[in-house]
């Protein structure tokens, strides 16, 4: 028997669900990253997981993103489609984001620094967004991704909108 692996995509995803026996469905904070990406604005970094200060953000990559930087590493995983990651080594990272700050910060314009390179991600690829750099994402067609990061000013929390609330 040949097994077929099922991945989700923006155009084709099925949601499971929480079936309650004796609990509150909100306790499971259940959502779907493709649905969140599909129903949010491009590059709206929506928290789909939160564990103290840490978050997983889901977003739709479509067109060109702003430039972002963080005072710590972040990681992006392409879940569907193709996403370019452009990296710049900041000349003075502490002047761009405070060294004790958390999460991704949107930069007001192009970053000052040396080009580090470009990564093109497709489904399942994970990239390092290293501390001390700025990054911009670009997708010619709508794509979906998640970000491993820390809650920051760009993180959007709209749990009641994205999560299952009824048994």
């Amino acid at each position: 028997m040949t097994a077929t692996t099922k991945f989700g995509s923006l155009n084709a995803y099925e949601k499971g669900r929480v079936t309650i026996i004796n609990d509150n469905p909100r306790n499971y904070v259940f959502s779907n990253v493709f649905e969140v990406a599909d129903t949010s604005a491009p590059y709206e970094r929506v928290a789909v997981g939160k564990n103290f200060e840490y978050v997983i953000e889901a977003f739709r990559a479509e067109g060109e993103s702003p430039w972002y930087s963080a005072a710590h590493d972040e990681f992006v995983v392409a879940m569907d489609g193709e996403i370019e990651v452009h990296l710049v080594k900041l000349d003075n990272p502490d002047s761009v984001v405070a060294p004790d700050s958390q999460g991704a910060h949107r930069l007001p314009g192009d970053p000052k620094g040396r080009k580090m390179g470009k990564i093109t991600l497709r489904r399942g690829h994970m990239a390092l967004l290293p501390v001390g750099s700025a990054y911009r994402l670009r997708a010619a067609k709508p794509a979906a991704a998640i970000m491993q990061t820390i809650l920051g000013p760009e993180t959007v929390e709209k749990w009641a909108t994205i999560c299952q609330t009824k048994a």
């Binding site: 099922k6 991945f7 989700g8 995803y13 099925e14 949601k15 499971g16 669900r17 929480v18 079936t19 309650i20 026996i21 004796n22 609990d23 469905p25 306790n27 499971y28 904070v29 259940f30 959502s31 779907n32 990253v33 493709f34 649905e35 789909v48 997981g49 997983i56 889901a58 879940m79």
Partner: peptide
């Protein structure tokens, strides 16, 4: 050990275990 829920997760689903 009494049952509280069943969770069916498909590709792209994310959920928390309390």
């Amino acid at each position: 050990g009494r049952p509280r829920a069943r969770v069916r997760m498909k590709a792209g689903d994310i959920a928390c275990m309390p």
